[in-house]
């Protein structure tokens, strides 16, 4: 840690809160490698009993969509209401879905 030219890489942290739920992005932190990132994530993000499972991934390994492409990517779905299952009558006995 003597030189700032050797900064630890950034890791994105995903935590699963309970069995049956999916991992959720909770934030990011620096670590020398993935194992250390898991330990750091344990200390930074699970101090209050938040998690049962931790995933870490180096931030540079994540491919992300570009905000500029949001038109072609998402707008075509806007007017296709028939893709939403909102036209079915749900019997009362079924309860909350």
């Amino acid at each position: 840690m003597s030189s700032t030219t050797h900064e630890w890489p950034l890791f994105e942290i995903f935590i699963r809160g309970q069995h049956g739920l999916s991992h959720r992005h909770v934030g990011s932190l620096h670590a020398a490698d993935a194992e250390m990132a898991i330990k750091n994530a344990r200390d930074v993000y699970t101090r209050r009993n938040e998690g049962v499972s931790i995933w870490v991934v180096e931030a540079t390994q994540i491919a992300a969509s570009s905000p500029e492409e949001k038109g072609p990517l998402y707008e075509p779905a806007n007017d296709k209401v028939y893709r939403h299952p909102t036209f079915f009558d749900i019997p009362d006995e079924v309860g909350a879905m």
Binding site: M1, W8, L29, H30, A31, K39, N40, D43, V44, R47
Partner: peptide, 9 residues
Amino acid sequence: APVLEEDIA
């Protein structure tokens, strides 16, 4: 501590 992560740990 030298870095935030170690400080919390």
